[in-house]
């Protein structure tokens, strides 16, 4: 173990995904906390998409807080991006709008893995009798493949954290099931569901604990840059690492993603600096 990572460092799906993506990027972003505000993508579209996605998420959150749909429709209609109103109307017309049971929107859960906090902020947790579901609202331009989503750290971290927060790994819950549900506002009829059970959570735990332990064991120089230099085209540290010079278009990234089934770029990588 090195002392690069402080004992209170909180792991999450996004920083673990970043580590998978490029160890050096993890080091620069989360350990060195280096602010390096070069462009991630060369166009404004991706930023507009993300901002519209954030506003859509807020409307859905407000829906689950109990606001009248008519009032929220007026807010959605007032949004400068017309897609937000369309997405919200699609949501209201879907079964997602009338989910039953105990509903916890935008809830943060934390557990401890390998001695470190591991947190998951879920869009919605539904506990309806024995049915427990984690919902994730998406506004992607292209429908991701099930295999891509299954490989994502999010699909493992969220069920693991929730299963531990709800004590589902204990004896007596052998048949317990968690559903991770990805609902795409642009593809409402094609909900992707990833169920998981006790055996899966044990597997996820081993996998994530191994990742965390690996991170904890690395020395500074062992956080090496990814050998796949194509990935540097959409990394803000590319000039710091003296790799690429110019950012690529966000559409190229999505196409690359779809065609080659590459690991998805961590969404938080697109957060603006500041």
């Amino acid at each position: 173990m090195t002392d690069l990572i402080s004992p209170d460092f909180t792991f999450s799906q996004s920083n673990l995904q970043t580590f998978d993506y490029c160890r050096r990027r993890f080091y620069l972003r989360y350990v060195k906390k280096l602010i390096w505000p070069a462009q991630l993508v060369s166009d404004q579209q991706y930023i507009q998409d993300r901002e519209a996605g954030v506003r859509f998420h807020r409307l859905v959150h407000q829906h689950f807080l109990g606001f009248e749909a008519s009032l929220l429709r007026k807010i959605a209609d007032g949004d400068p991006d017309i897609r937000v109103a369309t997405w919200f109307e699609t949501f209201l017309a879907s079964p997602m709008a009338t989910l039953q049971g105990k509903l916890e929107p935008e809830a943060l859960f934390t557990t401890k893995i390998a001695g470190h906090p591991l947190s998951a902020k879920v869009d919605l947790l539904q506990i309806d009798g024995e049915n427990i579901s984690i919902y994730d609202w998406k506004t992607s331009r292209h429908l991701p493949k099930l295999s891509t989503l299954q490989k994502q750290t999010q699909s493992k971290v969220y069920p693991l954290v929730i299963s531990r927060a709800l004590n589902l790994g204990q004896p007596g819950y052998e048949t317990a099931r968690l559903r991770m549900i990805y609902w795409e506002a642009n593809f409402p009829g094609q909900t992707i569901e990833i169920p998981s059970y006790q055996n899966d959570w044990k597997k996820y735990q081993l996998e994530i604990a191994a990742s965390i332990e690996l991170i904890l064991s690395l020395r500074r120089e062992e956080f090496v840059a990814t050998p796949d230099e194509k990935k540097c085209a959409w990394c803000e540290y590319r000039s710091y690492c003296q790799r690429e010079k110019i950012a690529v278009d966000s559409k190229d990234i999505e196409m690359t993603d779809l065609l080659e089934g590459l690991t998805k770029i961590p969404a938080e990588a697109f957060d603006s600096w500041g």
């Binding site: 280096l34 602010i35 505000p37 070069a38 462009q39 000039s239 710091y240 003296q242």
Partner: peptide, 23 residues
């Protein structure tokens, strides 16, 4: 500003290269 920083000033031959405070 982001492009100016990333494409020029943080490149070799310019003073923001490797300079964390400039970021």
């Amino acid at each position: 500003l982001s492009r100016l920083f990333g494409e020029v000033l943080s490149q070799a031959g310019f003073r923001f290269e490797g300079n964390t405070q400039s970021g």
